[in-house]
Design a protein around this nucleic acid. Structure first.
Length: 277
DNA sequence: ATAAGGCCCTGACCGC
DNA sequence: TGCGGTCAGGGCCTTA
C-alpha cells in the first residue's frame, strides 16, 4: 500500500537523516528479504558504504552509495524503513538492520515479509520494467494514449500495471478514476481522447495532493502500512473520496459508494458519477 | 502480446 | 477464551 506518494515522502524525509552516513555493519534476519545478491554478499558489500544519493522510481526507493552500489528498497504492503537509536531493540518484524556511523541504526521491518531489498551496481536492470513516471514532465498524453491503445483489460487493472504507469497502486487508482469520472471496468483501449486526458490529469492531481499530505496511512499497529521516517503518519487518507468508503455518501452526488473486485483487488467507486460507456 | 490466476506472508476479523 | 477459516494486497511467475 505504500504507493508513489508514500515512497516519495519516505525518500524526502530519509534524505537529511541518511545523507553522508556510513554503514558500519549489517545483519539479515530474514534472508528472503534480500532479492539480490546473496544475504552474505549484501552484508559484505554494504558494510563501509556511504549514502550519497536519494531518489524514487515508481514505488522503489533508490539509494545511491559511494562505492558504486545502489540500495533499492521496495516496501510492498507493510514494509517500513526507519532510523532508530542503536540502543533501541529492533521490533519482532525487523528483517534487516544496518548500523550507522552516527550511533543510529537503519531498520527494515515488514510484518507481511513481501518487501524486498536489492544491492546492485546496475539499478537500471532492477527498474527496467517500469513505465513512465506520472509526475515527470516527459509523461505526455501521446505516451499515455499509446500505452493504453488496444488494451482490452479494465482500466482499473491497467492502472495497477507498473509497466503502463509507475507508482500507482490500489488507493490512487480508485481515487484517480473517481476524479476522472470513469467506471473502473471500462476497457482501457476504449477510452476516448477526452477521457484519457481527464485520467492523465487526475492521476497527476491526486498524486501531488497526496504527496502534499505526506501520503495515506491506513491500518493499525503492526499492519500500519505507512509511517513516515519521522514516525508521523500521512494525512491524505482523510481526503479519500472513494477508497475504503463503501456505503458512505459520494462526496459529489451523495449516492453510496460501492465496492467490487477487479483483478483480485478491491475497487471503490460511485455508480452515479462513474458510468460505463 | 495480453490477460488471468496463483503465490508469497501474517494479522485482523468472523463464526462457533 | 480459543480455534479454524477467510481476507487483504504488490508484483512476480505460470498458464491460457
Amino acid at each position: 500500500m505504500p504507493e508513489l506518494p508514500e515512497v516519495e515522502t519516505y525518500v524526502r524525509e530519509l534524505t537529511p537523516a541518511l545523507h553522508g552516513r556510513q554503514v558500519m555493519d549489517a545483519h539479515v534476519l530474514w534472508p528472503r528479504t534480500i532479492a539480490a545478491p546473496t544475504p552474505e554478499a549484501f552484508v559484505q558489500r554494504i558494510s563501509g558504504a556511504r549514502f550519497i544519493a536519494f531518489e524514487r522510481r515508481g514505488k522503489y526507493m533508490v539509494l545511491g552509495l559511494d562505492q558504486g552500489d545502489t540500495l533499492i528498497v521496495h516496501l510492498r504492503m507493510t514494509g517500513h524503513l526507519h532510523v532508530h537509536p542503536a540502543s533501541m531493540a529492533p521490533d519482532k518484524h525487523t528483517h534487516v538492520v544496518m548500523s550507522l556511523d552516527d550511533g543510529r541504526r537503519l531498520d527494515f521491518q515488514d510484518s507481511r515479509k513481501f518487501g524486498r531489498l536489492w544491492l546492485t551496481r546496475d539499478p537500471g536492470l532492477v527498474l527496467a520494467h517500469l513505465g513512465p513516471e506520472p509526475l515527470d514532465a516527459h509523461f505526455s498524453m501521446a505516451e499515455w494514449q499509446a500505452k493504453l491503445a488496444g488494451r482490452r483489460a479494465a482500466i482499473k487493472a491497467l492502472l495497477l500495471d507498473q509497466a503502463i504507469i509507475a507508482g500507482v497502486g490500489n488507493i490512487y487508482a480508485d481515487e484517480a478514476l473517481f476524479l476522472a469520472g470513469l467506471h473502473p471496468t471500462q476497457r482501457g483501449g476504449e477510452l476516448t481522447l477526452p477521457q484519457l486526458a481527464a485520467l492523465h490529469a487526475s492521476i497527476q492531481a491526486v498524486l501531488l495532493a497526496a504527496i502534499e499530505k505526506g501520503g495515506s496511512s491506513l491500518g493499525n499497529s503492526s499492519l500500519q502500512n505507512h509511517v513516515r521516517p519521522t514516525g508521523a503518519p500521512g494525512n491524505y487518507q482523510e481526503a479519500h473520496r472513494v477508497y475504503q468508503r463503501t456505503g458512505q455518501p459520494c462526496p459529489r452526488c451523495g449516492y453510496p459508494i460501492e465496492r467490487m473486485v477487479i483483478a483480485q483487488r478491491s475497487t471503490h467507486f460511485c455508480p452515479q458519477c462513474q458510468r460505463l460507456g
